[in-house]
Design a protein around this nucleic acid. Sequence first.
DNA 1: CGGACACTTGAATTACGTCAAACAATGTGG
DNA 2: CCACATTGTTTGACGTAATTCAAGTGTCCG
Lengths: 240, 240
Amino acid sequence: MGNRFVEKLQGYDNLGDDEIAALVAATEGARNVDARKDLIREGDRPGPVFVILAGWACRYKILPNGTRQILAYLMPGDCCDLHIGLLGEMDHSIQTITAAVVATIDRREMDAMMDRHPRIAKAMYIAQLVDEGTMRAWITSMGRRCSIERVAHLMCELYLRARNIGITANAHLELPLSQLLLADSLGMTPVHLNRVLKELRKTGAMTLQRGSLTIIDPIALVQIAGFDENYLHRRLRPAA
Amino acid sequence: MGNRFVEKLQGYDNLGDDEIAALVAATEGARNVDARKDLIREGDRPGPVFVILAGWACRYKILPNGTRQILAYLMPGDCCDLHIGLLGEMDHSIQTITAAVVATIDRREMDAMMDRHPRIAKAMYIAQLVDEGTMRAWITSMGRRCSIERVAHLMCELYLRARNIGITANAHLELPLSQLLLADSLGMTPVHLNRVLKELRKTGAMTLQRGSLTIIDPIALVQIAGFDENYLHRRLRPAA
DNA sequence: CGGACACTTGAATTACGTCAAACAATGTGG
DNA sequence: CCACATTGTTTGACGTAATTCAAGTGTCCG
């Protein structure tokens, strides 16, 4: 396995050897981070750009009433907002889910790299647009899909994103996400999520057990989710 | 009233006279658009950047089952994604709500302008980050707030955004949003939204009637919404 | 005046939440 | 290797917020 960040950006625009070298150099000093460590917290003054090279993380927000909302999952190759440094304060937190390898790229270095390599800039912008599209899909799910559809939709999203970076095997994916975490992502209670997972198992579309997702009947799953087949395709492999 | 787009960006970074002139020139050929006209549709190949100079618009998505989800409101001064042209297809549609004045800026022209005027680029990036923050707030609302809290929260957001561009008077705002539109934004049925509005009226926090929003008791409203007072403050007036 | 459209209200239904308890998996220290 | 705490999953009984269906009441506008 090479540098996941480079591989992801390469999927968005063809990068030359010098560009790859620049990205590799920029992410060289990556550090190991334990599971469940905040990389940055709501209210903090943003610093450098984070890149997740291995492991999983999530964006989240804690509400005044103590509940939590997960806003997005970060998989290997993903990074935080490109221009994060322009804001005065973070409006959400980012935490590792598993042990992870995290690189940080100084804002100035990032700007310089994007100036020198327009294709890196383009790929970064596309990545940002894809992330935004995912947020819109979450809003849509929360607003207009019932619980079983929401769960199915999230599983489709995660599975396709994972397949895109080559961490699936057959119709199978190791998902290090507890039911509590998933419930906090989908706007439902853990109890209800558990019942929905049971129902999905019963339909024969998929199973999720002990952190292991198996897509048994992809067509049925996509059908339940109301998942637009082109949805991630076109976003993950946009026209050149 | 000057150019709302310029005024908004000026709020993010101090622009010089030449930069203002460049923005004014870029938005010169604005055209009038009727209410309820799609500016661009899901699946279309993106073209130039849209800027709303007057009137209201919204981003939305239609689901396979025919329901609709509003994803964001665009007020005077707002624009669509900066790098929209990099994607192969739109993943959502944008439609005017009222009659509107819309400028389009060619991608090349936009790139050139941002190259020549780094402060314009910075202001545009901040605007983009603010929009993203708003999306995260919507996800949070949908996931973790009950209906009355959601409604109150959206009204806080819209009121503050409107105040920031100077279209409020006292504690009052003309909101050209039907209850059907609001319901499709908040993930609820129009019937239920209507009842929630009635309840909010009863609490004495606010009224929304015939397109006219009045904040009667701001403290009570913020309290109901669980609205973070700093939330838009820090995003709309970030530290220099 | 009549037709279209947005808003309002009531009654019945349902999806999901709450509370509570049991069970499984994993890890820690004695 | 066992007691035991800890954290995640599963299930049942019950309560409630929100939807659905249906029938109004404005209000605008040709």
